[in-house]
Design a binder for these strands. Structure first.
Lengths: 227, 227
DNA sequence: CTACGTTTATAAAGAAAATATTAAATCATT
DNA sequence: AATGATTTAATATTTTCTTTATAAACGTAG
């Protein structure tokens, strides 16, 4: 019925088993990995539709695995974490996790989050064009229209806008944006971001002095809104 | 009706009796302990849903008992203390007590505190997009809404609010808040806290002069309520 | 009740940090 | 070499943080 592939990354066999059974009985196909390393190779060969990643892995830090994955894996990643580690959750969200669950969690909660994460990506993929207020982005043809006028964007501007659009409403940190658009060695080049955000705003905002699409979150990053 | 187990830890038999009767007539099941030691073994075998702990125990300092309990016991602990000892209360709250009552207290007050503490734990599931009355906090997208309007918070305001929200109903001392949000060297900068609490209240309270979300506990700290 | 000291609240000014803007220099591609 | 894009740099603007001053609230003692 569901037909989506889910990878579980957790070192505790009981937890894997528990999750596995829950998910399978909901119609998902399940793959399991015990270590971060195993997870990375599995994903490379068989990219799943969603990953459930326990942050408390033994071999390497779960955060590391997450960062590695995010260099090229773009489907949803939901992290599992123990109560105590709030900063860990924040870090993980910053490095591109889509959602998180605090252990222990109810299975209803788990399934709901999985459903919503998968729904979002499938919407995105099926939607050949997305609307954000006066902006229309056509992913297939890589064109952006504002009030039906085609905008001329450079490729960097376009990737930045796409990244924003894919994360509508969510605050994206400087580091995340820089890493995604320019690559991991550019994490500290905040000035790039400022320049390109300014350029984008000139093209997509009605009033550049009062941006409504790309909103600044001072000290943190930016947030894209459709209005 | 209530069906929750409450442990009373107090060395004075009359007080135990009084409390016991009050609680039982409200439908709680009650266990009693006279000494800290007794309390610890009782809790180990039969973890109650809530503990009422008198700080003035004879055999060991009530504070010690509290710290020991908090190493593994996570349900609410409400401490009872005499008027004079404000520092004692602060110490206890910092070592993990959820709330405090100053003797002598009205039984209505006692029952109200107990009710709210217990409700909190039963509700505390995987709050993710947490609801607090008219406030909604979505940790994944770093978004706070009031009546569905996105609030613009600075990063310090946000961290403070998050900290409050994660400890709904619990009294947080000035020192604790300062340490968590600004760092351990800021423990004495109470004025910061006042300024930022005022700013937060301006943004989240319906009537700033009668705050219902962030409530002042004079001489001790603040408490976040959802309403 | 009143006066006093203590704590808390608020506003506002100054300092610091972060962001925006602009333009020129550099680079890459044709 | 010409074009367009990116990078760098300099400067302006805005936002946030910190500090100070003052007012209000609260509890206590006389």
């Amino acid at each position: 019925m569901n037909d989506a592939n889910i990878l579980i990354v957790d070192d505790e066999p009981q937890i894997r088993k528990m999750l596995s059974i829950t998910l399978q009985s909901s119609g998902y196909r399940v793959i399991e990995a015990e270590t971060g390393k195993e997870a990375l190779t599995l994903v490379a060969n068989h990219p799943p539709d969603l990953i459930l990643l326990d942050l408390g892995l033994p071999d390497q830090n779960g955060q590391e695995v997450l960062r590695h994955l995010r260099e090229w894996y773009s489907n949803p990643i939901i992290i599992l974490s123990v109560q105590s580690s709030e900063t860990e959750i924040v870090t993980a969200l910053d490095s591109g996790a889509n959602d998180y669950l605090v252990k222990p969690f109810r299975t209803g909660e788990l399934l709901a989050r999985i459903r919503s994460a998968i729904r979002k990506t499938s919407e995105r993929e099926n939607a050949h064009a997305s609307e954000f207020g006066d902006l229309t982005i056509d992913f297939a043809s890589r064109t952006v229209k504002r009030n039906n006028q085609i905008l001329k964007l450079t490729s960097t501007e376009y990737s930045l806008l796409i990244l924003f659009a894919k994360n509508e409403g969510k605050v994206l940190t400087h580091q995340y944006l820089l890493k995604q658009v320019w690559g991991p060695t550019y994490i500290n080049e905040s000035q790039y971001l400022r320049v390109f955000v300014a350029q984008l705003r000139k093209k997509i905002e009605m009033n550049v002095n009062r941006p409504t699409h790309i909103v600044t979150e001072s000290g943190v990053g930016y947030r894209f809104l459709s209005n």
